[in-house]
Amino acid sequence: MEQVSDTLVPLTLTIDGVHRTEAVDRRSLLVEALRDDFGATAPKTGCATGDCGACTCRVDGAVVKTCLQLAVAAQGSDITTISGLAPRGELGPVQQAFWDEQAFQCGFCLSGMVLAAEDLLSRNPEPTDEEIRWAISGNLCRCTGYETIVAAVRTAAERLGAADS
């Protein structure tokens, strides 16, 4: 077993507010470490080449496709998955809008879609439909045809705007 354990290194992450250290294969992608070693399975592996976005998380404030980063490169990072977006089992405004607008079917793309939408609205609170489509274009969905996802982001923007004013 020596060769196998040789590849293990300790990795410390804060995931959805919980600070933990686990032994991680140093060859692992961040998404693999999150899912397999830390048990954070909300991000999914859809391609492992950065094309589908299903593995998206917020890493130190930036929206990151976690299949494009080695786990060890995230040492000490603060990571938010969609499980950590809203406290105490409630839904955040973007999540709520996705539910209300039927903006997903199989749900496999949701990590990426919701985090990309949150990221857009944090920078641009009143996006046009074209801006929404551009913002989520790094994330693939095979079920919805994107129409209701665009509607959900629009709805979330309206609700957030109404709440602010």
Partner: peptide, 17 residues
């Protein structure tokens, strides 16, 4: 709406993998 949409949106649905 989907009866279990909140669980999907919180990443609480366990797929095969």
């Amino acid at each position: 709406r989907r009866h279990d949409g909140d669980r999907y949106l919180q990443g609480h649905i366990a797929y095969s993998d």
